[in-house]
């Protein structure tokens, strides 16, 4: 963990998108988690993406409505 290359907020958005197509490497996952943990802006943004993907799934008939 200590050798992690820090990533930027912009980098996290790429990883969040890429993760929809492929499994992130363990280094990428660790870098993403470490960044989000310390970055309030990214906590907000990743929550937004989470809600977006969950609601999109419901909109497209992947799971039931509440």
């Amino acid at each position: 963990m200590s050798h992690q290359v820090p990533i930027t907020c912009k980098d996290t958005t790429w990883l969040v998108s890429d993760a929809r197509e492929r499994e992130l490497t363990s280094e990428e996952k660790a870098a993403l988690t470490a960044h989000i943990e310390h970055c309030e802006l990214c906590q907000g943004a990743s929550k937004q993406f989470e809600v977006l993907f969950r609601q999109l799934g419901m909109f497209l008939g992947k799971s039931g409505s509440p």
């Binding site: 930027t8 907020c9 309030e40 802006l41 937004q48 809600v51 609601q55 409505s65 509440p66």
Partner: peptide, 19 residues
């Protein structure tokens, strides 16, 4: 590479109407 503005906290819609 940092976000330039804070992000509003979203939550999932709470009701059918909201959804």
């Amino acid at each position: 590479g940092c976000w330039s503005a804070p992000k509003d906290a979203w939550s999932d819609p709470h009701s059918h109407v909201e959804q």
